[in-house]
Design a protein around this nucleic acid. Structure first.
Lengths: 195, 195
DNA sequence: GTTCTATCTGAACATACGTTCAGATACGGT
DNA sequence: ACCGTATCTGAACGTATGTTCAGATAGAAC
């Protein structure tokens, strides 16, 4: 029996990507088979190929869409002219955006090595654009002497690394609320770059 | 022909682990086959099983040895009583130890999900011991009012995450020397926790 | 009510996987 | 010079992989 009841392209496509997202995040791209993904959707493996040309494209699409959403969500912020305030906005945005999408973030960063070289280059360029946004803030603050940073490039990476650390331990409903976490991290980031 | 010239257990064993280390780091545990590892050593796949009961044990041993070395190297430091100085020591030790072992570090952190539950528990306990060492420093400094930290547990994880970020970009022979890198990170860490 | 087509099944393809093991070989000890 | 054994080969095992495709079916269009 094919074309089971209530099946539609608009439904199956997203369901496949959602299943792949969860499985890739939990077990890793290489360790997940197309049959597992299909099984989670309730479909045979062959049906996946109505929605993706191959497994690699499935991974790439997940990562690409995530990075696009990250950048466009960040662009939607109307950033403060004040560097210190802009940095505070960045910290809050980064923590909240990433905590809302643990699987996407995990994949976008753990599965880079499983991308083909061309796909890797493309994702890397998007990641770079995001880093540049933070570096611009740090440079502005440095020029205005509100920050005192030895090396803005390193500081950019250090701040992002520090913020990403929150993903390894934060569980909603845990000891601290999101607001508290944001406050704690902002305190540390602010002091680490302040004049 | 078996038992080729100059082959010995003392030589092949380490060579297998070295090959596995590099391949796991580059392509990921799940994406690397026993035949690839054997090929890099110049041996047939079956020969690997003279040195490891299975693929999982190979991964576990690499991670376990790495964590043991980390802890014993840290224990060899004679730590300062002064919390600020102890933190400086920790930052320097962490950066140098980890930059000397990029592959080991990468694996110990990316391949956790490919460990069996029992193996995972064991590695996690070792990692926890290392984190506790840093937290002890932060607590001491907090008690002595030389640090001003909202939450020592979070600060511990934030500092380690920040320091680990150095591994994503540092290349020896690059723009900055190891000493300069250490100085830059120490500046940021110190300020992020200082009173 | 018939036709048309998007969607899915089920089976097959070639290839790869981790692991085992009988047999071959080269070195260390005598 | 010979033996014993640690070490490795080469082939095989069953299973799994990504991908393809002819055929079946269900809903949309008329």
């Amino acid at each position: 029996m094919a074309r089971t009841q209530g099946s539609h392209s608009d439904i199956t496509g997203p369901r496949i990507r959602k299943a792949a997202l969860g499985l890739f995040a939990r077990h890793g791209y290489a360790a997940v088979s197309m049959r597992q993904i299909a099984g989670e959707v309730g479909v045979q493996a062959g049906a996946l190929y109505n929605y993706t040309p191959d497994k690699q494209s499935l991974l790439f699409r997940l990562m690409h869409e995530h990075m696009q959403e990250l950048l466009s969500a960040y662009d939607d912020l109307d950033q403060s002219e004040d560097a210190s305030e802009a940095l505070r906005q960045f910290v809050g945005f980064h923590i909240r955006f990433h905590l809302e999408r643990p699987d996407e973030v995990f994949i976008a960063y753990m599965e880079l090595r499983n991308l083909t070289p061309e796909n890797f280059t493309e994702i890397e360029a998007l990641r770079r654009r995001y880093e540049d946004a933070l570096e611009a803030i740090l440079r502005t603050g440095q020029a205005a002497r509100v920050f005192d940073i030895a090396d803005t490039k390193i500081a950019t990476l250090a701040v992002i690394a520090m913020l990403n650390g929150v993903m390894t331990w934060f569980r909603s409903g845990g000891r601290l609320s999101l607001d508290e976490v944001e406050q704690v991290y902002w305190d540390m980031v602010r002091r680490s770059v302040s004049a």
